[in-house]
Design a protein around this nucleic acid. Structure first.
Lengths: 343, 343
DNA sequence: TTGAAAGCGATACCAT
DNA sequence: ATGGTATCGCTTTCAA
């Protein structure tokens, strides 16, 4: 940890007591003569003094730090939210430390422990799975402020999230409204928001009185990368009868899908409609601009931070968990249109 | 910071001294009878004991933590590296805390101070600017392990970085070799690797004995987003005589450029060749797969971590700074070809 | 084997 | 106005 400058050092150098130095340096209360103040401040600057946050927090019992756990650093949706959250937290006087879990449940548990051991005052998290939340629920029950940034309201834990079910339902309704009857759903791993997305998919079908074909619901081999979308297409198009539209659970998947279509001379949206989720930046810039569902990062980060502040300030007895769910907008571009009538 | 379980609590509960509890819980040295050990461990588990890292580090004078400062959380090149670095650091028994600066120099300084105050044992950084490094140099001079993840060798501070100059030179040589004589260079802000990239651009021209036209070197209004690339195109194509190729300092810019070309019925690469830097995932999936320069994240993270370990272990007297520069590969796809002969 | 005591760096309370 | 002293939670001698 090295030879750092401590209060003691600047006390020695100036001849004042550690105490006086501490008081001066933190601009705290009593009236210290200008002279002393200047001497001490000069010494501190000269020595490049930086308070030891560990020691400080140990006694103050406050770290003014919150942790944010990200399941995937490569997902711009998550990192954007993290960035926004960090900024807003800073405005409230809180530091943020980010921990990444690489979508690994064990690493998630470890990150949580590390963060807690470091005494962060609250934790925001994009969990690796919507299904395994018990450790978080337990944490919250023990009185620790924890806030989920994705998931469905469960009542056990605070949540500020996009309403994936609603977004999915809107999108699928749009497709159904266009006349599609065979809509493939490419679910990127059973893990995350996709349970809700599938639920919306189902709900839309029901509302339209259209029967779903389970063989149209596929899971890509791995992750939600463009690569993975690309690789899944052979399977998707092997289903008979062929789908007339395909809904990818993430725009990144759709990117791969579009590429595949191009290579196989499949016109989008002429031969096949394609839609995604997230509205990442490139979605608007693709060869065929993508119809998708927006991701309300700004609203999520804003509400999450607001809620987190009340949780932190309620020190000790947390209010009962609350769920805020933000309804996303449909973003209609040109990758979807009515199916041609020749099957 | 709340009502946490301390050694004291489990000592009280079991009747042993704090000391014994501490020794047992950390599996440390002396031979403790199985009986005591079990009692204490059971109590710890029951109480959900988690050691206070602040207190622990305060006395041990070690945090086994390194900080990584990212200028931009939205750049997949940076976040990928961060992810890889975090994993490798974990294998060495170190935790990583990530701080984002949103490309803001002041926030960068603040992040550095916060990290240091938290006693991280070393700092890895993608600085906001290649030009303002004095604070980092000063830090390093004071004996703090700091490692730059981008930049040109300056000898003042450790560096593990892509060789942007070489990458740029290769790419521009490729274009020149194809017969292009008017190659626009879209520099995303004077800030980062672009000094080196421009240098490579210049070097290639010199090597080919081709005069550069300064009016072909443009700076987009803001950042290196697709949006920004798109917006710059009007200016690029207004230069007379028109360029036959355009080199964007980031693939993300190129995405916007390609979109603009499509909207303006400009064929790529028929009418205009387009190239970028980074080889981000979508570059291979675009309408016109992009010729670009790869970014060696794996090599960078590996070498950076290796170097960092020796810096940390040399506790006290750091070895003189070293620069490692990794030569990137040219990735030739289909967005560039020889210019048509009709100007 | 187990425990008492000192100390890490900073803060806060109470004197002076 | 300035300084002593106890304390935060834990580790580390050093005794017993």
């Amino acid at each position: 940890m090295s030879h750092r400058v401590r209060l003691k050092d600047i006390a020695a150098k100036t001849g004042f007591s550690i105490n006086t130095v501490s008081v001066v340096l933190r601009g705290s209360s009593p009236k210290i003569p200008e002279a002393t103040r200047r001497i001490i401040e000069a010494a501190a600057r000269e020595l490049d003094y930086l308070p030891n946050a560990l020691a400080r927090s140990l006694v103050s019992q406050r770290t003014r730090t919150v942790g944010i756990v990200l399941s995937n650093l490569l997902n711009p949706i998550l990192t954007l939210s993290a960035q926004l959250i960090e900024q807003q937290l800073a405005e409230h006087g809180y530091d943020t430390v980010i921990a990444a879990t690489g979508n690994d449940y064990l690493r998630e548990r470890k990150a949580l422990d590390t963060l807690r051991a470091r005494q962060v005052e609250a934790i925001l998290i994009y969990p690796t799975s919507h299904a395994r939340l018990d450790h978080l629920v337990a944490l919250r029950r023990s009185g620790y402020p924890v806030l989920l940034l994705t998931g469905a309201p469960a009542g056990e834990i605070d949540l500020v999230s996009i309403d994936n079910r609603s977004g999915s339902r809107k999108l699928v309704s749009h497709l159904l409204g266009l006349g599609h009857r065979r809509i493939a759903f490419l679910d990127a791993g059973q893990a995350n928001g996709n349970l809700e997305k599938f639920d919306g998919y189902r709900a839309a079908h029901e509302a339209f009185g259209v029967a779903m074909d389970p063989s149209l619901v596929l899971i890509p081999e791995a992750g939600s990368s463009a690569q993975s979308g690309y690789r899944s297409m052979a399977r998707v198009m092997a289903v008979a009868p062929k789908p007339t539209a395909i809904l990818a659970s993430a725009d990144s998947l759709a990117v791969g899908i579009l590429r595949w279509c191009r290579e196989h001379a499949l016109d989008v949206p002429g031969d096949l409609s394609v839609a995604g989720f997230d509205d990442i930046e490139i979605s608007a810039f693709l060869d065929v601009p993508l119809t998708t569902v927006s991701y309300p990062s700004h609203q999520i980060s804003e509400q999450a931070v607001a809620r987190l502040m009340t949780l932190i300030e309620s020190a000790g007895d947390l209010p009962p968990p609350e769920s805020v769910t933000i309804d996303p907008d449909l973003v209609i571009r040109s990758s979807c249109r009515s199916p041609t009538l020749t099957p």
